[in-house]
Amino acid sequence: MKQKKYIADFLLFTINKRRIVCFFMFILIFLTATIMSIMLFCNDYIDTPQEDREIWLQNYQKAIESEEKFIQDNPGMPQSMLDSANKKIAYYDYLISHDMIGYDNVILSPYAGMIFPLDGNISCRSMLYCSIFSIFSIIIFVYLTYKIFLSPYDAGMFKIILSTPITRKEYWTTCFLQWIKAIAIIYFIGTIFYVISFIGNQNSVSVIYLDGVWKGYSINGISIVKYIAACVNSMFLASLVLLIGTATKKPTYVSVLTVGLFVVEVICCSFFGYSIGSFNISMLFPGVSALSVDLYEDVATYVILSIHTIITCVAICCSYKIFKKQDLV
C-alpha cells in the first residue's frame, strides 16, 4: 500500500533541517573518532617501545615454559588438561610468530558494535576515544527511539496521524520496523568496522586465552559473546527509554536523563578503571557492561547479558501494555 511506504518518509521528514545537521554531525564525529581510534591502535601497535616489547616477549616465553614444565611434571594428567596446556602453548606461539605483541586486551563499545583493540595497558587516551564513540552511538540510539516512537505521541501528533487513513496497526508496525531498521543500520556500520579491524591481523576466529586460561571464542581476539552483549545492551537502553518515557509521558526528559546517566557511567569507568567497571558499575548503570569489558567471557558477562535480555523483553512488553492502556495501539 502506497500509504505504508509514506509513513517511513513521514517519520524522516519530520526531522527538521537543524536536527538533520546535528544528526549528520554525530555521524561525522562518530566516524572520525572511529578512524582516529583505528589509527591510534595502529600507532600504539607499531610504536610499542622496544623495552616493552621485550617484556611482553619474555612474558610469553615464560608462559610457554611454565606450560611445558607443567606437562613434564605431570606425566599422568588427564587428556583434557594436556590438551588445554598444549592449546595455551600454541596460543603464545601464535602471538610470538605473528608478532602480536601487546595484543592481549581489547575494548568493545557497547552501543554500535564498535571494536577498539588497544595495546596491553589501557591508556586514558584510548579510554577517552572509546567513551566518545559510546556516547555518540548511544545518543543516536536514544534519539532514534525517541523520534520514532515517542515524539509524535509526546507532541500530540499521534492524534493527527491517526486521524488520517492510517490505522493504528499500520502505524505501530511501521514504527517498529523503522526502529529495527535503524538499529540494523548502526550495527551494520559497526560490523564493517569489526571486519576492518581484523583485516590486517589474520587472526580470524580463535579461542581466547587470558593468562593461559580458556575464556571463550573470539573473532580477532574479541569475544563473540561480548559482541552479542553489546547488541543486547543497545536494545536494553533503548527499550528502557521507551518504557520510562511512555510511563511518565515525559520522553524528552527521560531521553536526556538517560544520555546523561550514560555519560556519568562512562566517566566513572574512565576514572575508576575498567576492571572496577566490569561488574559493579555495570550493575548500577547497566548500559555500560560491554564497555567495561575484560577481554574474556566471564560470569559477569553472562549474568549481565541474561539480565539485560530479560529486562529488554519486559520493558518492551510493559511499553506495549501502557500504550494499549492509553488506547494508543
Binding site: 500509504q3 509514506y6 518518509d9 513521514f10 521528514f13 496521524i161 488520517t164 487513513p165
Partner: peptide, 8 residues
C-alpha cells in the same frame, strides 16, 4: 505537505 504523505 508532511502530513499529506499519509494520504493517497
Amino acid at each position: 505537505y508532511a502530513f499529506s504523505k499519509l494520504y493517497n
